[in-house]
């Protein structure tokens, strides 16, 4: 197992563990908004590290550039998607869990 493989496998396992954490997070978190924070951030990190593993493993310009392009692309789209869903959820009145202390957004939007 040469150095390149070791680094690849380490990165892959980091990514996979992130994924599992995201999975557990989405299952156990009490309400939608907290779950979303878990999934978006953690999953993107997971994929990021796996793609880094690809860049390390294949060491070719073409492939590494595409891998990095994917990471960039994901970093761009994931937050936007999360934002859109949170917006829609909030507007359609998805309740916050009972543990939440305050709803700072209340009153700011003219909810129909």
């Amino acid at each position: 197992m040469i150095l390149r493989d070791i680094v690849t496998i380490v990165l892959i396992f980091i990514g996979t563990s992130f994924m599992v954490i995201a999975g557990i997070g989405v299952l156990r978190m009490p309400d939608l908004y907290i779950r979303m924070s878990a999934t978006t951030k953690v999953a993107t990190m997971g994929v990021g590290s796996i793609l880094l593993a690809i860049a390390v493993y294949f060491q070719e310009l073409g492939i590494t550039s595409r891998a990095l392009a994917t990471v960039a692309f994901l970093l761009l789209t994931a937050p936007v998607a999360a934002h859109m869903i949170a917006r829609a959820a909030y507007f359609t009145g998805v309740p916050l869990c009972n543990l939440s202390i305050a709803d700072e957004l209340k009153g700011h939007y003219d909810l129909r």
């Binding site: 996979t16 993107t44 997971g46 994929v47 593993a53 998607a81 869903i85």
Partner: peptide
């Protein structure tokens, strides 16, 4: 969405 992201990861791995 999470499943889709995981699919990306899966493909890469």
């Amino acid at each position: 969405d999470l499943i889709a992201t995981m699919a990306i990861g899966f493909t890469a791995v």
